[in-house]
Design a protein around this nucleic acid. Structure first.
Length: 843
RNA sequence: GGGCGCUUGGCUCAGUGGUAGAGCACCGCCUUCACACGGCGGGGGUCACUGGUUCGAAUCCAGUAGCGCCCACCA
């Protein structure tokens, strides 16, 4: 490793033009988590491609980023140091974190908190880099970035301001998906469904006229009755048609709400009528918006029912005193507790019909959260995506997907988009929105009056920096300014990794040499987030794809076919693996996993990889012990070997260009083993001069050419062992050597392919195999001489015999060799008697 | 509900029109002068199921089932 660094083997040559560059948009791993075997797996895939392209002569732009931005870091810092962020506190320059977290979290200011985040992530990054180097990633370590560093912040804020200037970013107060524990908005892309137990409650609503039947609905969230603003049913539903336009009275609270028709109401579900609340789920939001309903919000940002004085606008009740009394019981409670309470009240009032019927249903969660999402009205920043849907689908078709079927996930996601991208988060550790608002004389914020910094000032922190034309004393004062308190979604920054790594608008020369990049390697679970968002940003800013290829890797599954993850406790630490099986061994296993395919964690394969590396070491030692000069390759089986190898080189080059690395490794390995088992055995005697110097030179020439080629074919997969062997006899690094070409291999044996020579080699190997089989069947030592061998074969094959006979006699220890015509190859083998003393090599 | 992928020997997987393959595991043999962190050999599969196309199907087409994943406005 030290040698690679010292020689600048992996340095990016920025004098090269775009056509000679291969640029990789390396995924920045989340440093707050630990690296697991899945990282080793997918990063190896990328490294194989990087090494191949480098040997092909490309200047490989292979940076490394650290994703230290966002909630995972916040959470880790909170737990590691035992602190919590309180933005209202002033910065304390003398603050030092305790060695161990105490019982109670220590409140610290936002700048102090951010300092702790930076300190901890810096330590994590060192550990990560060590592992990557140990694994042998051919990253240019002079080009690292972190998603929270100044460069990333600058790019992130710059890109945001550009979107804002073009009206592609906007602010809106609207119902937003909200995590009540993290107390932040979350985006559609961060949702996941989880099966949760719940129960249908059948509730009756009294007609406001006092006449006619009660209207019954089923709901899983009866606690939201005070937030009910309407009932809804399908427009064609005969049962409810007469009710459309009329009003009903909510139970317990006595609020008059209309009955409305809407096509989304499913007559098959429940009673066919549903309660619309502000807001129980995303369907409520659609109904509320499309039917123009009022808001009766009751859930606060912490998930508790907010205190309400009944009688506010929109909260009229036929019995305000009763409504207030009912509601006072709920105020301050969580949704779950409120549900229990209200069910008791409904039972008492007779408005709950029958018992709740338990069900299991999918509920939306923030993917990192522990409690179901609520929908809370708040002011958030959005980036326009809906209007670009068709164009983004076209970008998806333009992108080359590996494997191709992964494009379906991208299309699926775009076709399912429900709204623009909410990019603001009510968190502390992240890239701040680079703007301020004017404060009106009455102290309220004028959100339409942004104050934005010049691009040359970026990055800014609006909580400490001051907009032009103002002085710090005017912060939060009437007539003054106030900083936007939010930070951006981590994906808002991560979606700019090509721009960050390529130093957009900072180093235009570099940017022009590497952007758009060649490949984005990533896993399939973040196509809807990272890949999609990156395409969006590039499309908006540059009207182009950010890269030409998307190389999608699968997951590593444990033997039970479950995704390996920390929470399941089935993760093996990567460092222990690398130490146990060797980096080449682990890489061998990883490289056997095809693009997009989930792969079983398999230490057995790592052992095989290590064995291959050792075999390569030993075979190389044999090849390089050149007992006679090497010279022109003339013998048939030597030319056959190089012809086969030339074909493998041709196929492997095409496969690696197409990101199909598994096939290359498999094919090269198969060739190498037959090279060891058959070819080396066949030429062993000849190369020592048994058949004279010319034929010895032919064997040695072929051995050297084959070894040189195989080492280079293996180099992207097994960088350590190949570099070691290369250093025994060649100058420089194998990883900077030229990728082999068929022409180069054939040049060593006369310049053209030779089918007949290939057949000769295969024929000789088959005869040798038959002799070995006989010895094995007879349970005799391999050094047992063959008293007599009769090769029965078609005439065409027998015609090949003279060219390989001497090699066969020597390697098979054949004393008497005869031939006979036959339809297919069959070898009669007669071994020397067991007690024959002359178990020695015939001359 | 829509979509994608997978289903080949005990295990992990190649193989996409022409007589079923590899590695691991298993069994047997061999300390051969590159390699016992080794080598050689062997047993083992009606290629999920049904139908179709074809001279011929693991391979192409249609459908079915199971598993996994992605997506969706699941009151």
């Amino acid at each position: 490793m030290a040698r690679w660094d010292a020689g600048g083997v992996y340095s990016f040559d920025r004098t090269r033009t775009r056509a000679d560059v291969f640029a990789i948009d390396t995924p920045p791993p989340t440093v707050s988590g630990s690296l697991h075997v899945g990282h080793v797996f997918s990063y190896t895939h990328t490294d194989v491609i990087a090494r191949f392209q480098r040997m092909r002569g490309k200047a490989v732009f292979y940076p490394m980023g650290w994703d230290d931005n966002g909630l995972p870091t916040e959470r880790r810092v909170q737990n590691y140091y035992g602190v919590r962020c309180d933005p209202s506190l002033p910065y304390d320059p003398s603050f030092t974190a305790p060695d161990k977290p105490g019982k109670h979290a220590i409140p610290v200011s936002r700048p102090n908190f951010v300092e702790l985040c930076a300190r901890l992530t810096a330590e994590d990054e060192k550990i990560f880099e060590h592992l990557w180097r140990y694994l042998g990633l051919s990253v240019d370590w002079s080009m690292t970035y972190a998603t929270i560093d100044r460069r990333a912040q600058r790019v992130s804020q710059l890109s945001f301001l550009r979107l804002l200037r073009r009206d592609l970013a906007y602010q809106l107060e609207a119902p937003t998906l909200w995590d009540i524990d993290f107390r932040t908005a979350v985006a559609q892309a961060e949702l996941e469904d989880r099966e949760q137990p719940g129960a249908y409650h059948r509730i009756r609503f009294k007609p406001s006229s006092g006449e006619g039947a009660f209207v019954e609905i089923d709901t899983t969230r009866p606690e939201l009755i005070p937030a009910c603003v309407a009932l809804v049913a399908h427009p064609d539903d005969e049962r409810y048609k007469p009710l459309f336009g009329r009003e009903v009275i909510t139970p317990l609270f006595g609020v008059r709400v209309p009955v409305k028709p809407h096509a989304l109401a499913d007559p098959e579900k429940g009673t066919g009528a549903a309660m619309i609340c502000t807001f129980g789920d995303v369907t409520d939001v659609i109904w509320w918006r499309e039917l123009g309903l009022p808001v009766r919000a009751i859930i606060q940002t912490n998930g508790a029912f907010k205190p309400v004085t009944w009688g506010e606008r929109g909260w009229e009740s036929t019995d305000a005193a009763r409504a207030q009394a009912q509601y006072d019981q709920l105020a301050g409670l969580s949704a779950v507790k409120a549900r229990t309470r209200i069910v008791d009240e409904l039972k008492a009032s007779g408005d709950l019909l029958g018992e709740p019927r338990p069900i299991t249903h999918a509920v939306k969660f923030y993917e990192k959260g522990d409690r179901p999402l609520e929908i809370v009205t708040s002011r958030q920043w959005f980036v326009k995506t809906m209007e670009f849907r068709e164009q983004l689908l076209a970008r998806g078709r333009e992108l080359e997907w590996h494997p191709p079927y992964m494009q379906a996930r991208y299309d699926n996601w775009i076709n399912g988009l429900a709204g623009d991208w909410c990019v603001s988060r009510q968190r502390f550790f992240g890239v701040p929105f680079p703007l301020w608002y004017k404060v009106r004389v009455d102290g309220s914020l004028d959100y339409d009056a942004h104050l934005v910094p010049g691009e040359d000032r970026l990055p800014v922190d609006p909580s400490t920096d001051v907009p032009y034309g103002y002085d710090p004393g005017q912060r939060n004062q009437p007539g003054g300014f106030a900083g936007d308190p939010d930070v951006m979604d981590t994906w808002a920054t991560s979606s700019l990794t090509p721009q960050i790594a390529a130093r957009w608008e900072e180093d235009p020369d570099l940017f022009a040499r590497v952007f758009p990049m060649d490949v984005r390697p990533q896993a399939h679970d973040i196509i809807r987030t990272w890949l999609f968002d990156t395409v969006l940003r590039s499309h908006c800013e540059f009207d182009s794809l950010p890269w030409k290829h998307a190389a999608i890797s699968g997951w590593v599954l444990d033997p039970d076919r479950k995704k390996m993850s920390k929470s399941k406790g089935n993760v093996v630490t990567p460092m222990a693996l690398l130490e146990a099986h060797g980096s080449d061994g682990v890489r061998y296993w990883a490289a056997s996993g095809r693009s997009g395919t989930d792969t079983a964690f398999d230490p057995g394969q790592m052992k095989v990889g290590r064995r291959l590396a050792i075999k390569l070491l030993n075979a190389s030692r044999f090849v390089l012990a050149q007992p006679a000069p090497h010279g022109p390759v003339t013998a048939a089986i030597d030319r056959g070997l190089l012809t086969m190898l030339a074909r493998i080189v041709r196929e492997s080059t095409a496969d690696l260009e197409a990101f199909n690395y598994t096939r290359v490794l498999e094919r090269t390995e198969t060739f190498f083993w037959s090279f060891c088992d058959d070819y080396l055995e066949l030429v062993k005697g000849r190369r020592y001069g048994d058949q004279g110097p010319a034929l010895a030179a032919s064997a040695n020439g072929a051995l050297l050419a084959a070894l040189s080629t195989m080492l280079r074919l293996f180099a992207p997969f097994l960088p350590f062992v190949t570099e070691e062997v290369w250093s025994w006899w060649r100058d420089g690094s194998v990883h900077r050597s030229a990728w082999p070409t068929p022409e180069e291999v054939l040049a060593a044996c006369g310049g053209s392919e030779d089918d007949r020579a290939v057949e000769s080699l295969q024929f000789a190997a088959a005869v040798l195999g038959a002799i070995r089989k006989k010895k094995s069947e007879e349970q005799r030592a391999l050094k047992t001489p063959v008293a007599k061998a009769v090769v029965r074969a078609p005439a065409a094959q027998l015609a090949l015999l003279p060219e390989v006979e001497q090699d066969l006699r020597a390697s098979g220890l054949i004393q008497q060799l005869e031939t006979a015509a036959a339809d297919a190859l069959l070898v009669d083998v007669e071994l020397a008697p067991p007690d024959t003393p002359g178990e020695e090599r015939p001359q």
